[in-house]
Amino acid sequence: MNRTFSKLALWAFLALLVALFLGYFITRVLPDYLPAGRAVPPRLGDLVFYACAAATVAGAAGVAFSRNIVWSCIGLLIALLGTAALYVFLSADFLAVAQLLVYIGGVLVLILFAVMLTNRIGEVNVSNQSLGLGGGLAVFAAVAPLLMLVAVLVPWPVRPPGPMAPTTARIGDEFLSTWLLPFEVASVVLLATLVGAVVMARKELKAD
């Protein structure tokens, strides 16, 4: 009973936060961006953006707040997919594909493997440690308003972005000119990762 009540209270608190923020956003911030006088009918691209954003936020909430770790994994999948779709909106097609291949095809599968290998999935172990949900809410209350208000209220220079164009060639040019040293360092990091993961995951061989 107590746990159900606390869970309900938590969700009510989160819903209240979201509602407050949305209300502030719609009444105070949004009118500056709309042309005065008439309502703008939403366009299809905007609707797709909102759908992707909603899916991403829902997936992120699933990762952070789900009790079942498999649902956390699926939430992460949804969040990563939504973010990849948003990358396409930001005309970062190459990075969207890289996200699909590396994150969803690699990292998520690795996490799922780890979940399945550590076979205590259905374990309900509600932690009441020192930095439990209270600490989480405290950090949320400390960080979230700052980040969101900065994101919303700062008048970032609105310049009309250029037309969407394939970015692969330009990224390649950048990698081999401006970012050459980080590029090579990244390859060394990947090599070290390869060796390190093998060393950590192998079985110890007995020297005979």
Partner: peptide, 26 residues
């Protein structure tokens, strides 16, 4: 695209906050 940068930044902030809460509380 008529979506301004603020919306993307807001979405990124929400994602970051969720991740932060998860790191601290789970």
């Amino acid at each position: 695209m008529t979506i301004s940068a603020n919306w993307y930044l807001l979405l990124a902030a929400v994602l970051f906050c969720f991740g932060l809460v998860g790191v601290v509380s789970r």
